[in-house]
């Protein structure tokens, strides 16, 4: 399809206007992290700092144990991602490559769990984890991820359904057992789907606020999202340190997204139908 020059220009104008809407807040925030506090809340506001204060970052970072929060966030993100990738691929493999009694009804149940609002399970889960003695530990945030998540299982199963039926036959004739077939043959094929689920989970868990808010109490257990939110409460009068930590916090998911966006775009396209 070819467009006339006039409509091309029109499209670029619209695209650029939208891009400004999405990028300007980030740019404005980025430059403001280098401002003095007085300049950051001056009216009328200025876009660029008149004097650059890179030390703002160090001051903000050392004003609370952000190193500990960062470590907790990394720990939770890495451990849940490993758990999701392993458990979801096992379950998806079972659903996609086998026929067994009750398969359809179990899969329907799996799909319907995606509709349950978090409030309904969050309260009893809190009681449950309290009973296990897990409150104020990172366990409630990590352990459930090792038992799969409906949406990720669904994505991987869709991917596996596309692999030709006779694929495992040859391996079975060679005497490989079920687990070997899953691990040696299907794991490599699943790679794009594993990356997709891994990245989606990393971004979700890194950003999660409600889970940490409910299950953690001590500052030594805080994740970065929770630390930043509590920082907002304490420092609500000071905007610059808050912006500095915000910039630090949003960089990892943005980088991961930019690197892995090919998998996200492709994964989105197959998932709905």
């Amino acid at each position: 399809m070819n467009l006339s020059k006039k409509s091309k220009v029109f499209i670029y104008i619209l695209l650029t206007a939208a891009a400004i809407y999405f990028l300007a807040p980030f740019a404005y925030m980025f430059f403001s992290t280098f401002k003095s506090e007085a300049e950051a809340i001056a009216y009328p506001p200025k876009f660029f700092p008149s004097q650059w204060h890179p030390e703002n970052f160090i001051k903000a970072w050392t004003s609370q144990p952000f190193g500990t929060y960062l470590w907790n966030s990394i720990l939770v993100t890495v451990l849940t991602t490993a758990g999701q990738v392993i458990s979801c691929s096992l379950v998806a493999y079972g659903f996609a490559r086998y026929e067994f009694k009750g398969k359809n009804i179990l899969f329907m149940i799996l799909l319907s769990t995606m509709m349950i609002p978090w409030d309904v399970t969050m309260i009893p889960q809190y009681m449950e984890f309290n009973l296990f003695g897990w409150i104020n530990t990172l366990k409630p945030l990590i352990v459930p991820a090792w038992f799969g998540s409906a949406y990720y299982i669904f994505l991987m199963r869709q991917f596996l359904m596309g692999v030709p039926k006779d694929f495992e036959e040859a391996a079975r004739i060679d005497g490989a057992n079920a687990f070997q077939i899953y691990w040696k043959i299907f794991m490599p094929i699943l790679k794009p789907s594993l990356i997709l689920v891994g990245v989606l989970n990393m971004i979700t868990v890194w950003n999660d606020y409600l889970g940490p808010l409910i299950f953690l109490q001590d500052r030594s257990k805080y994740t970065l999202a929770l630390g930043l939110a509590s920082f907002k409460g304490v420092h609500s009068t000071q905007i610059v340190p808050m912006l500095c930590i915000t910039v630090v916090m949003i960089i990892p998911p943005i980088i991961i997204f930019i690197i892995a966006q090919k998998y996200i775009v492709e994964g989105t396209s197959g998932s709905i139908k």
Partner: peptide, 24 residues
């Protein structure tokens, strides 16, 4: 065999979803 593969989800469903749902 297939039940072994889906076992993680079945356990998770009982312990972290349907159990809490009924309890709630």
């Amino acid at each position: 065999t297939p039940y072994f593969f889906i076992l993680p989800w079945v356990i998770g469903f009982l312990v972290f979803t349907i159990g809490p749902l009924i309890f709630s």
